[in-house]
Design a protein around this nucleic acid. Structure first.
Lengths: 262, 262
DNA sequence: CTGGTCCATTGGTCGTACCTAATCTACATC
DNA sequence: GATGTAGATTAGGTACGACCAATGGACCAG
């Protein structure tokens, strides 16, 4: 202090520091492991070291190690099994993990059904084009099976067949997405279809006419995909999506009139 | 046993049981909180009770409570702040959280650039149509600004302008997505654009010609969006995407020849 | 071959203690 | 009164240590 006191005016704080980030240890570990996994350092199915082993290696506490593993688990990069020969097994993220986060966005933002239909109208025709281009015979078989199931549920007026019909409907759409052999679009469509399904579940506008029309449309789109006619697939899918969306909107307006001024 | 023993042949295993789930407590808590958040029980920004308070309420250990909160944090449903007046604050998931998981899928599956371009070619024209329909004046201003910046970087042969050019390119595409006012498509395009950006960074095929063509295409698409001409926007965007993808593929083939037999 | 017992391994949960970060409060200083 | 500063207060972050629970394997009995 003696030398410093000689200075008449002491400058308060000449050095500027932006609030430098103090990362949490668990995040650091998670980031490190994530990077290695994505870089491909481990083959799929490889077991990461046991938690206690990681504790020894990283000199972190088990709490911290476990939080890091939990993060990776939520992100779909690792699957954790209990018991002997258990542990954290490396997994590559799949469409489901992506579909999940899309679903979260949809629910969390309370995205309206109209917006969902609009999105599907935007994406699925393109999906159909790719399906026409890349479909295999197995894809075609799935589509046909979905069509048959749908037709059965459309004609058979069984008890509470609405939910079944809608489920089968979703299956067909997912089959189209799968046939596109594009994992991104597939994941997106899975989330979208599921969300539309749960939004539609409570409405009764899917009457016999709509069902019949749906079956016809699906058949004709399937044929285009079978014939590898991309342009036709796009056109028909676009028509199908558009008329479906229009029907929904019409019903919504009617319901808004019947149940006024909320 | 006596009555059963009368039976001469005992059927081996007539009852089928699926492995019944034994949920982890942290998951149970996370599921419960997630459900409440998504249902809208808390307004955005609301603070969940402090960890120790949750411990008292749920009678779980703090470890468990913390893991549950960590799960929600990773899913983007909650933001955790330290210090006094800190805690877990409810957040609605945004496009970024979705974009993140899409990025994980892309990296984790090592999806090839060709597939990314194919996906963009499928989605972005539809994006452009919606942008033409819903764009506001503010959106238009963003697009114009992005165009100007891009033009500047295309003509000015500054040092290492490639990265800058690509970044500005991404900005424009994101501006288009934003103008569509569709959160799902926006999140999807953000992830896609970022991934394409990082995949393109190392290539030198973005020469002066490609840059000039890009600027021209963007201008004409912007004009269509400005005029609310959806069909033109789709057409031009599709052309743009297609020619870009073609250029990339051509370069890839050339590089494959130059660097043969890996 | 079937079933049972025991053991070793590994994740799951708990409790406690302490550290660190952010904020609030009260008081001192000018 | 405005302002700065020190300490108290409240939160999350980390560390251990102990024990529970699930799983798989080895071994043994029938």
């Amino acid at each position: 202090m003696t030398a410093a006191d000689a200075e008449p005016t002491t400058v308060r704080d000449p050095v500027k520091l932006t609030p430098l980030p103090v990362p949490k240890s668990s995040d650091v570990l998670a980031d490190d492991l994530r990077e290695r996994i994505l870089r491909g350092d481990f083959r799929e199915g490889t077991a990461l070291p046991p938690e206690r082993e990681l504790v020894a290696q990283t000199r972190m506490s088990r709490t911290t190690v476990r939080e890091a593993l939990r993060i990776l688990e939520v992100q779909g990069l690792v699957r954790i099994k209990t018991g002997r020969a258990g542990g954290a097994f490396v997994q590559r993220p799949d469409e489901k993990s992506m579909a999940n986060s899309v679903s979260l966005l949809i629910r969390g933002r309370q995205i309206r059904l109209a917006a969902l239909l609009e999105t599907r109208e935007a994406v699925e025709p393109a999906c159909a084009r790719l399906a026409a281009k890349y479909r295999t015979d197995a894809d075609l078989a799935s589509l046909d099976a979905a069509n048959r199931e749908l037709a059965r549920l459309a004609t058979d007026p069984g008890t509470d067949s609405l939910a079944d019909f809608l489920r089968a409907n979703v299956d067909w759409h997912i089959a189209v997405a799968t046939a596109s052999h594009n994992e991104l679009l597939t994941g997106f469509m899975i989330a979208l279809s599921r969300a539309i399904y749960t939004s539609t579940d409570n409405r009764e506008f899917v009457d016999a006419d709509v069902r019949a029309a749906t079956v016809r449309a699906h058949r004709s789109i399937t044929r285009a995909i079978q014939d590898r006619d991309g342009d036709a697939a796009v056109r028909r899918m676009a028509r199908h999506m558009h008329s479906y969306a229009e029907a929904v909107v019409k019903i919504e307006e009617r319901m808004a009139i019947e149940v006024p001024a909320d």
